[in-house]
Design a protein around this nucleic acid. Structure first.
Lengths: 119, 119
DNA sequence: CTGTTACTTAAGCTGATGCTTAACTATCAA
DNA sequence: TTGATAGTTAAGCATCAGCTTAAGTAACAG
């Protein structure tokens, strides 16, 4: 498990780790928005919000396009799925393992009862 | 947004953002392990690995229990689900929105054809 | 052309993160 | 009791993340 890094996942989870950025994603999940629309609810400077947007864009979770002087940002659902899939697969294999353990314990228990295989 | 709150999601995504920690989770998804078992594949000092484990434990993704001099760590699948659910819900609402947009565009297109409502 | 809007760029500060080494404690085995 | 094993604690350090303010550019409105 040498650090031959899964950089996309690093960037995505890092991006998701900040509440401001999750707020931006929540907003964007309701539809595209301009930079100043996105910044408005937050109690921080505009450059700070733009920096958060850059993190989101570098991670691939958000894309943007500038028309005239307005930059419009939107969510990239496929990227979100990458993060979701990783988590899901880890959880699935752990839960599968728990299930197998459960079965094993049940077998043990059944075995202890020796003749308890009726009904 | 002055980090005045280390919410569960902050801690979880932050924990998942590091490749070493995701490596630890992958290992743990195959079953519980001791600290030194977990540290063995990594090219870093034991205290460094222990620090990563502490991050995972603080985030709730991993629990551990010490018996004798051995600390055994295991995954907490419910916590992983918390992170997964957040992502999933954001993605779902964005995809729903894309679907509605799709329908809207289809209606527009149908409308343009005027009498194209036959068959 | 002039002012306003909508960002963009740059520099700098502060605290958090990811390591390190060294020294320490507690358990187990002989 | 002695020594090895398994992990813990502490201090220090370099880099990075998240903000700030100040100043700059580029489009559009009158």
């Amino acid at each position: 498990m040498l650090n031959y890094q899964q950089q996309p996942l690093d960037l995505m989870f890092q991006a998701l780790a900040d509440p401001t950025r999750r707020g931006l994603i929540s907003r964007l999940s309701r539809g595209p928005a301009s930079v100043s629309e996105l910044a408005e609810p937050f109690d921080m400077s505009l450059p700070a919000v733009v920096q958060h947007l850059q993190v989101l864009e570098t991670s691939g979770l958000v894309t943007s396009e500038k028309v005239g002087r307005v930059r419009t940002c939107r969510l990239e659902p496929k990227a979100l799925m990458t993060a979701e899939d990783w988590i899901s697969s880890q959880r699935a294999s752990w839960e599968a393992r728990l299930d197998r353990l459960g079965e094993y314990l049940m077998e043990l228990q059944a075995g202890e009862k020796k003749r308890g295989r009726k009904k």
